[in-house]
């Protein structure tokens, strides 16, 4: 099958010159007999290795903490810290979501207290960290965020982490 293949009948002038494996024509003009089709795979493996290294560097083993909606764009910040897994309050389409469950602005405190109660039931010997993550679009006005700030203060969450995209 190879005898009639393109490798056998055509001549490629590669930058490697005459030493190229894909060039079947010998210096003397005689056609070298090829037993099998050979390709220079080293360059391919080099490229693959570089790709794997690059992708491994951008690999995250922590998993997704936030799910961004289509219309949601987080603000950008240069000096942001690594995002950790904490209860998430999301503002989407002027609606509030506590851990993906829709909550009315008046129900925020109750929802946060419920989360706090659950934490203390699951981990009775651990101190309650009192941290929440806020996820909101960058164009949202503070009047919407204010309800979260007030509710978290009332429910005993002293630390607020605003989710941002790292610059």
């Amino acid at each position: 099958m190879l005898k009639s293949s393109i490798v056998k009948t055509s001549s490629f002038h590669s930058i490697i010159g005459e030493s190229s494996i894909v060039n079947p024509t010998h210096e003397s003009g005689q056609k070298r007999k090829l037993d099998s089709g050979e390709l220079l795979l080293t360059a391919l493996i080099d490229a693959f290795s570089i790709l794997v290294i690059f992708l491994l560097m951008s690999f995250s083993s922590t998993g997704e903490i936030l799910y961004l909606g289509k219309n949601q764009e987080l603000p950008k910040a240069a000096l942001a810290t690594q995002l950790e897994r904490n209860p998430v309050i999301k503002i989407d389409d002027n609606k509030y979501y506590v851990e993906d469950a829709e909550v009315s602005p008046d129900g925020l405190v109750a929802a946060l207290l419920d989360l706090r109660k659950k934490f203390q039931e699951i981990r009775p010997n651990e101190e309650f960290p009192g941290i929440i993550t806020v996820q909101a679009d960058r164009r949202v006005k503070y009047e919407l965020l204010n309800s979260i700030v007030l509710a978290s203060a009332q429910a005993g969450y002293s630390d607020i982490k605003f989710a941002v995209v790292m610059k």
């Binding site: 794997v52 992708l55 491994l56 951008s58 690999f59 995250s60 997704e64 903490i65 936030l66 961004l68 987080l74 910040a77 942001a80 810290t81 690594q82 995002l83 950790e84 993550t133 700030v149 978290s152 203060a153 002293s158 630390d159 607020i160 982490k161 605003f162 989710a163 941002v164 995209v165 790292m166």
Partner: peptide
Amino acid sequence: LLLTAVWLHVGSMDVKQAV
């Protein structure tokens, strides 16, 4: 790795309650 790569690095801006 292409399927699991994270292209958008999300971080957090930490603040305390001022009140």
